[in-house]
Structure formats: C-alpha cells, structure tokens
Amino acid sequence: MPEFKKTVGALLALAAAGPALAEKTIPTAARIVDPAAGWDHLWRDVLIDITVIGIIFAMITAYLIWKYRRRPGNEQGSAPRLSAAAAIGWVVIPSFVFMADDFYLAANGWQLWNTFREVPADRLEVQLESGMYSWDYTYPNGVQTQNELKVPAGKPVLLRMTSRDTLHNHYIPDFRVKEDSMPGRITYLWFYPQKPGTHVVTCTEYCGVMHSYMAGQVVVLPPAEYQAWYEAEGAKVKKAAAPAETVGKTPA
C-alpha cells in the first residue's frame, strides 16, 4: 500500500511540476502594461484574422457550389486527376500557410500570456480563500473582507488564491482575467485597476448548487480614500487582536 501511495504521489508531483505559485515578477521601473487592454487588442487582431479566413473560405465554397451545380450539360462530375506534384502541393502549401498563421498567433499569444503572468513588483497583494459560496479576501495588514475587494486606483493587484472546499474560479470580466482556486494548491492572477469604479466578480468553475450566485465585486477607490479605509480597518484589526481589549468581548 505505501508503495502504491508513493507511485500515485510521484504521478501527482509530475502533474504539478513547476508550481504555479512561484509567480514571475517584473521590476518596478518597467512601465506597467495593462493586461486587459492587451487582451482587447489581441482579441481584435484575432477576430480580424479569423473573419478574413472565414470569408475567403465561405466565398470559395459558395462560388464552387454555384458554378458547378447540376444542370443540363453538367450531369457528371469531371474533376481532373491530380498529378503527384499537384497532390503534394495541395498538402505542403496549405500546411505552410496554416502553420504561418498558427505561429503568428502563437507569438502574439505568448507575449500577452507573459503580461498576464508577470506581476509588477509594486503591487497590492491580497490573499483569497474561496469557499461555498463566498470570496474571502485577506489584506497584508490582516484586514478581511467578504465578496468585496477594495483596491486603490493605479496600483496592480495580485491575488493569491486557494480554496477551502470545492473548485472555484475568480473571474472579473471587466479586467478580462480568471484563474481557478482549488484546495491544496495556490494559484494567482493579477489585474491593473486604473479608474475608480465597481466591477463584477463571479465564479466560473462549477462549485456546487449555488455556483451561479457566487458573485461579488471589485471596488476601485481613489488612492487617498482607499488608504483611509485601509488604515481605519487595520486599526480595528489591531485593536481586536490586542489581548487586553478583547477580554469579555466577542471579536468583531
């Protein structure tokens, strides 16, 4: 039995190779690239790419269907036999065209992927524990919030995520980013809020009966307002933690 466990353990370790929690960091001095803007840009490029291919293909097909419809005088197909050279050409040339497009897209995708994975050094780091059915955030100074992530405008936010029960996925459509949170592992995502406002957070990994209700929000505040909130809440946490103060009281 221990043998067996070991084998399974090794397999699991293999699957987990390159732990996702060791996020890459880019130095402070570098200009911060907004992944959401990058997403919109690449999405537009790819849409153009596939629309052009689609229209070309559809037009060729429609033309062939029309041109070679069965009618008096065209009762039998008369496709010529392909010569060996033509047959090979019809494999090699399209394959290279497709591969060229694939590699072009892959290169762009690779670049944006790095943007999504390399977190700026100057950032707000928040721990997230998800559970059925809430998002529980913990700030560096111990402040905890539920289903509401308050962040300052103009500072990248890194979420380090895990789950205490089933799988969940922290998705913020406005920031074009999501990643699973799961028990026994730590994953991360980051986003770059620039203007004050509120944004929906919603769960995109089936986690149980109330999955569709597992929503919250990101509230982006002007930096000064955020700082005031952060310090006031931090002070409350400190007070609650101080032993003399909590005697006889239930902690907030």
Binding site: G38, L42, V46, L105, A106, G109, W113, T115, F116, R176
Partner: peptide
C-alpha cells in the same frame, strides 16, 4: 490562444 482564454474560458 492561452492568453485569450483567460477571459473567454468557462
């Protein structure tokens, strides 16, 4: 494209 699925997935 991995980077696009960060928004589109699920």
């Amino acid at each position: 494209i991995t980077a696009l699925t960060v928004n589109l997935s699920e």
